[in-house]
């Protein structure tokens, strides 16, 4: 079983970070519900997850990199 804190951490491990129409950077809502120790664990869990993603992807790209590239390419499509 996982604890509520573990679920919050897992929710914020995702690379999905919706962008505000204003372009303003938004934090994952779960980040604000975590205490300092939880945020430290979030950092480690995210780094572990991305290390696994890097090893699994033939091009070495993580979901973070994919999300950034998607934003770059979609902006170019609009330009």
């Amino acid at each position: 079983m996982t604890t509520p804190a573990e679920n919050l951490i897992e929710a914020a491990v995702t690379a999905c970070r919706p962008v505000e129409p204003s372009g303003e950077l938004t934090f994952h809502p779960a980040f604000f519900d975590l205490d300092a120790a939880g945020r430290e664990r979030l950092f480690v869990a995210t780094a572990q997850q991305r290390a696994l993603e890097r090893a699994l992807a033939s091009d070495g790209l993580t979901t973070t990199a994919e999300a950034v590239l998607q934003r770059i390419r979609s902006r170019r499509g609009v330009d």
């Binding site: 950077l25 934090f27 994952h28 950092f43 995210t46 973070t64």
Partner: peptide, 11 residues
């Protein structure tokens, strides 16, 4: 790590 959502900042 304790003061910002590092994933959002990194992206």
């Amino acid at each position: 790590a304790t003061v910002v959502d590092t994933e959002a900042v990194l992206q």
